[in-house]
Amino acid sequence: MIRAEVIVTLKDGILDPQGKTITGALGGIGIEGIKEIGTGKYFHLRFNTNNLEKARSSTEAVCEKLLSNPVIEKYTYKIIEE
């Protein structure tokens, strides 16, 4: 079986107010060494095909068309064989 994991994050330079707020909480909980935390969205995809190439092209298509808004977001994905 193959599946995919997609992560969508804001492009560099786009304000990430949630990430900023989370980063701001670090000082109060005594965890050191973290400079910045950013947020994003995680999606998992299952396929009804075992064709890797087909899965890859469908994943890219859904990232471009639906899962991300290219004006403000970028995406990465990996196809996983199990």
């Binding site: 304000l15 107010p17 949630q18 808004n69 004006v71 403000i72």
Partner: peptide
């Protein structure tokens, strides 16, 4: 695009 308000 429209993104989350600066104030959150």
């Amino acid at each position: 695009a429209l993104v989350t308000n600066g104030s959150l």
